[in-house]
Structure formats: C-alpha cells, structure tokens
Amino acid sequence: MDIQGVIHFMQNYTYYIGAFGLIFIGLFIMLVKRNLIKVILGLSILETGVNLFLVSVGYISKGTAPIFSNASIEGKSMVDPVPQALVLTAIVIGVAVLALALSLAVRLYQHYGTLDLRQIREQRW
C-alpha cells in the first residue's frame, strides 16, 4: 500500500482507526504492564475499543437512530440496529468481567500486600 492509499484509508475509516487504536492500546497494556490494576485498566480500554468497533460496523452514512418516535419517520436512513443490541450485551459482559477482576484484585492485595504480578508467584511449573 502506498502513501496515497494510507491517506485514503485514514480518511474513510476514522472510526475504525479510533476503535482499533483503543484495542491495540488496551492489548499492549495487558501484555506489557505488570501491575494488576493497570492490566485491568487495559482490559477496560480494550473492551471500549471492541464496543466502538461493533457500533461503527453498523453505521450507515447520515443514518439516524432506529427509533420510530413518530409516524412520519422513514425506515430508509436508519442505522443497523443489530450491532447496537450486540454492544449492549458486550457492555454488560464487560462490566461483569471488570467487577469480578476488581474483586479478585482486592483479595489478591489482602493476601500478598502487592499488586505487582512479578512478585505474585505462588504457583510455578
């Protein structure tokens, strides 16, 4: 892909770039950082990125929200409702995982007095 192609890509896919930017930042934090709270933050960023990606998959140019709030609204220019429903589910699942991760972090800190994963090595090969 040449420079022109890259610029064209950037212009047309701003949302995708934002979404995958968040996804990669989140993944990078989770892979590299050794502090559990930072890892959980990375997980949160990763999930936000995935949700943004799902919503932007269903977007239609100049589309409106798929709600017939009065009878005169046409169904032609509405965005796809399915990804929005999926994102609702994905957000709730993300909240559940985050809550559980935080509670485990609380317990881990009670046991070890640290959240540094390098120092938490009860289990070995």
Partner: peptide, 26 residues
C-alpha cells in the same frame, strides 16, 4: 465504513413494528 451489509438489520427496521409492536427497534 458507513455502508454496512444489513440484510438482517433492514428486515428488523422494516417489519419490527408489526412483529413486535415496539417503536424502538433496538
């Protein structure tokens, strides 16, 4: 971006009101 493949989604928009009675298709 901006022109997704919405075969299933379009049907929900077209027939969702008759099939479920909800104004909010989501």
């Amino acid at each position: 971006f901006g022109s997704s493949e919405t075969r299933v989604g379009q049907r929900y928009i077209d027939q969702g009101r008759e099939e479920t009675g909800a104004a909010n298709i989501v």
